[in-house]
């Protein structure tokens, strides 16, 4: 009881410089000075230990992805030693070797690049399309809104990874097609969030005033609506990178994404699956890599959400 009271005071203080609304859904808090917001955000984020751990791990992943050769001990595909297959972890092969005698550690390292590249691209494209559709729907309303949101409803009618699976099944198995599939999969979520926030911003008095003064729609959208819907977009994008990693590795696991000999984590799991009887390390480490990557983006996303919008607990 006492604790929740203390929390409430903190919340109202942090909101003192911003507009609040009572819709209760995911909406932006417009009106905070950008610089002040940036500093407060960073301070709040750094106070969140879980988010710091997640962020630090993501930085490590980015470094590894940028220069995998600095970290790898062997070449991920060319190094093969048929006489040393399924070797358990050792000082020479930290994560052991796989069914072709390749170094699992080096393949996991190079896999970071593959995974992040797929996840970032798919979320980026999905975000661009989704945000555009959401802003257009929320700002113009009426039939435009109805049409766009019905289309989003259709995409959301496919449960889980089924939409991505169906798209890849038609386009063919490749990582680029996985990017397309996950991008399409993530469009409706972005569109929905942004539409809601745009609606809330559009009806604010100052935006209506600017419009009454004759500002062009594009200018209003770019200068006033977009900055105000950024917070929920950033949170959603971070969380969706986690989802994208899970879906991409899942599709590769099913043979619909990366093709051999690409060192992709899901594909490595699929290949190692047949050998869990004698070499569990071949599946253990790529799986851990997926889990830790997903976990770090989830931690950062949760932290960002708490920092950007204290009401969304």
């Amino acid at each position: 009881m006492g604790l929740s009271g203390v929390r409430k005071v903190q919340v109202s203080q942090s909101l003192s410089s911003s507009f609040t609304d009572d819709t209760g859904s995911i909406v932006a808090q417009p009106g905070i000075a950008p610089i002040g917001r940036g500093r407060t955000l960073l301070r709040k984020l750094l106070a969140n230990r879980a988010a710091v751990v997640g962020g630090a791990y993501i930085i490590l992943l980015l470094v590894v992805a940028a220069a995998p050769s600095l970290f790898a001990t062997h070449h991920p595909t060319r190094y093969q030693n048929p006489t040393n297959r399924f070797a358990p972890p050792s000082s020479e092969h930290w994560f052991g070797t796989d069914n072709l005698g390749r170094d699992v550690y080096s393949r996991v390292i190079y896999g970071t690049q593959v995974t992040l590249w797929v996840a970032f691209r798919s979320v980026f494209f999905g975000m661009i399309i989704g945000v555009t559709l959401g802003i257009v729907a929320g700002y113009y309303g009426k039939w435009v809104d109805a049409l766009i949101m019905r289309m989003m409803d259709i995409l959301l009618a496919f449960p889980g990874i089924l939409l991505a699976l169906a798209i890849v099944s038609a386009l063919g198995a490749s990582l680029d097609n996985v990017v397309i599939a996950i991008a399409i999969f993530s469009v409706p979520t972005f569109a929905r969030i942004v539409r809601g926030s745009t609606l809330a911003v559009r009806n604010l008095e100052y935006v209506e005033a600017i419009r009454a003064l004759g500002a062009r729609d594009v200018k209003i959208l770019a200068q006033h609506v977009l900055p105000n819907v950024l917070s929920p977009i950033i949170v959603q994008a971070t969380l969706y990178i986690a989802t994208a990693i899970l879906i991409a590795s899942g599709l590769s696991f099913l043979g619909l994404g990366a093709q051999p000999p690409i060192p992709e984590w899901g594909l490595m799991l699929a290949a190692g699956r047949d050998f869990i009887w004698n070499a569990i390390h071949v599946t253990l480490f790529p799986g851990l890599a997926i889990m830790l990557a997903v976990l770090s983006f989830n931690l950062l996303g949760d932290g960002l959400r708490d920092a950007l919008d204290p009401r969304l607990k």
Partner: peptide, 18 residues
Amino acid sequence: ALFGLSMPSFWLGIMLIF
């Protein structure tokens, strides 16, 4: 719960089998 959310289900399945 956070670990549960972040684990790829197919990997969890393989580990349970193991």
